[in-house]
Design a protein around this nucleic acid. Sequence first.
DNA 1: GGGGTTGTTCATGGCTCCCTGAACTTGTAG
DNA 2: CTACAAGTTCAGGGAGCCATGAACAACCCC
Lengths: 195, 195
Amino acid sequence: MAQTDDKSNRKRSQLDKRVLQVTDAVGAFIEYWGFKAVHGRVWALLALRREPMAQTEIAEFLGVSRSLISGSVSELSSQGLVVPVGDHRNAPYSAALDVWPVIKDVLRGREWMLLESTRLALESAVEEAEVAQSEGHDVPWDLERMRLLLSMTELSQALLRILFAIGVPRSMEGFSEWIRKASSLITTFRSAAGA
Amino acid sequence: MAQTDDKSNRKRSQLDKRVLQVTDAVGAFIEYWGFKAVHGRVWALLALRREPMAQTEIAEFLGVSRSLISGSVSELSSQGLVVPVGDHRNAPYSAALDVWPVIKDVLRGREWMLLESTRLALESAVEEAEVAQSEGHDVPWDLERMRLLLSMTELSQALLRILFAIGVPRSMEGFSEWIRKASSLITTFRSAAGA
DNA sequence: GGGGTTGTTCATGGCTCCCTGAACTTGTAG
DNA sequence: CTACAAGTTCAGGGAGCCATGAACAACCCC
């Protein structure tokens, strides 16, 4: 019995290591998108779990302090990426798998703002440069290039707007069909655009 | 004459301020994509200039040290985002406006690797979990969700692969047509996918 | 109601990274 | 050839951020 328990434990810890590799990979991925790595690790861990987990459990599994998990979970919870299961105070948490709305919000919130501020600055600069040039000043700026950058910014905003309008399948069943259609349409697009 | 010179100078510095706002905006945008802000500022400045600029000139305009510009320019140059004009040693630099190849390289280099490591980790974890479960162990992991995440990773890789295949117009003339076609195709796609 | 557990808050330490200024090398003009 | 300007390199200062653990509050079970 001791042997099988031992074997079972070893097997479990082996599995745990694999899962930890997953959480780390997701964490690294998420970190590159401007979030904190621990957010990705917590989310991935909860996403793979059959049952919701308490904060202490999460902290022990990931090998970090409870205080770190506390902050991370509250932030993730406010974004709707994890949800408490049960209505009592110390309810364990489970992951929300529908991440597309959150991604959309993030893109809308920060990418859009960055593009918009660029666009506004470019617009002002173009106007100012046009005035200066019409007054006969020798401006060292290339008006054509300024307008090119402005167009590129507007193009990016247009693409972002389109992206916001795109829906993704809620369940897994639609994914392969979704990607198949996307592929064929992109192919069509490529030949149509002549790129 | 002193008056007109004064007026001219004020007008120029006003224009310079506008341009600085543009470079800062581009810098902030670029920074959010994991690059250094100063890279975006240098590139934007050179992109708007009619004539190529020497490093000292760039540093003075942006209000930073020459040493910072030296490193930034050499990195940008190695990526082909700025190019020296002339073959002598201290040649001034101009910006390359065709940034899409660089973006593609970046996405290929890092986003792909992050996705691939996630995929591999998930694959291993799924296999391990399947073995453990088939041996009758009570694994706390949800195999279905693991496979879901695996599919999501593969979907992302597929989309990324498609993105690599997309070309963008080299000149400005094609942009509006390009975005028009993209819009209509996405619309088609939305109704086809039933999102 | 008290011990133990879980979750939260906050000041601290440590780490990373960016920018700078000084020293140095290279190039150029008189 | 010499003096100056442009570019490069590098150690160090400084800012920002992340994770920790200790202290505190809330809760549960006996």
